[in-house]
């Protein structure tokens, strides 16, 4: 993967999309092969895992905000504890990214007081506060009510336009068309097909891909 590249991963349920991206920050153990993040080879040593996690931001389907902390505290915890930067600087950074996901005015609220879309944008801001080199998204919009999907996708598009390197597991094909450099299709734990979005959607090579795209488009 190149710096600044945006990859969209899709495929049927259980095909291993989450497993693949969770291997990148070692939330999942690697059985075979190797992963190199920003020049650091990911092995089982604590040090390697640490270094890689500092460079990789992740956004989950279920937001996973910390319920006992305000939005601002959610965004400041890891910079202070893992990056060991000062409180003032951490707060400035947090407010900057909250502003950027257009939720700066909610900084003092608790997660439960926000809508799903707002929570997911906070989760994006929280990951950005660690200044990651790559952002991983695991179906960031699939737990959201339809009317909130757009605000999160718009945030992600903004991030993409700013040059962030991104891997997104999503079935939002409009998003894939608009920002992806490459679309990868997985099934049964294997990469079946990959290509630029135009070619991928207009002219899929494999029967399995065509079937999947047919199902997805029928739903939307």
């Amino acid at each position: 993967m190149r710096k600044g590249e945006k990859i969209v991963l899709c495929g049927p349920s259980g095909s291993g999309k989450s497993t693949l991206i969770r291997c990148i920050n070692r939330l999942e153990a690697i059985e075979q092969g190797s992963i190199v993040v920003n020049g650091h080879r990911l092995d089982d040593s604590i040090k390697a895992i640490d270094v890689v996690r500092q460079d990789v931001g992740m956004v989950f389907q279920s937001f996973n905000l910390f319920p006992h902390m305000t939005v601002l505290q959610n965004c400041m915890l890891a910079p202070i504890r893992a990056r060991r930067i000062g409180k003032t600087e951490a707060e400035a950074t947090a407010r900057k990214y909250l502003e950027r996901v257009r939720i700066g005015d909610q900084a003092e609220k608790y997660p439960a007081q926000l809508s799903g879309g707002q929570q997911q944008r906070v989760a994006i801001a929280r990951a950005l506060c660690m200044q990651p080199k790559v952002m991983l998204f695991d179906e960031p919009t699939s737990a959201l009510d339809p009317e909130m999907v757009k605000e999160v996708l718009d945030t992600m598009i903004g991030l993409a336009n700013d040059g962030m390197t991104m891997i997104c597991v999503t079935h939002e094909m409009g998003f894939a068309r608009q920002v992806a450099d490459r679309v990868i299709f997985m099934a049964e734990g294997q990469i079946i097909e990959e290509g630029e979005p135009e070619a991928f959607f207009r002219n899929p090579q494999h029967a399995r891909t065509r079937q999947f795209l047919g199902e997805i488009l029928a739903h939307h």
Partner: peptide
């Protein structure tokens, strides 16, 4: 367990995840 994973993904260690994320809730 998503709470714990979010902590790890943010670069926190096991002890920090326990102390700052898990303990209070």
């Amino acid at each position: 367990k998503g709470q714990v994973e979010a902590g790890y993904a943010l670069g926190l260690h096991k002890g920090q995840v326990f102390r700052f994320i898990v303990l209070k809730p």
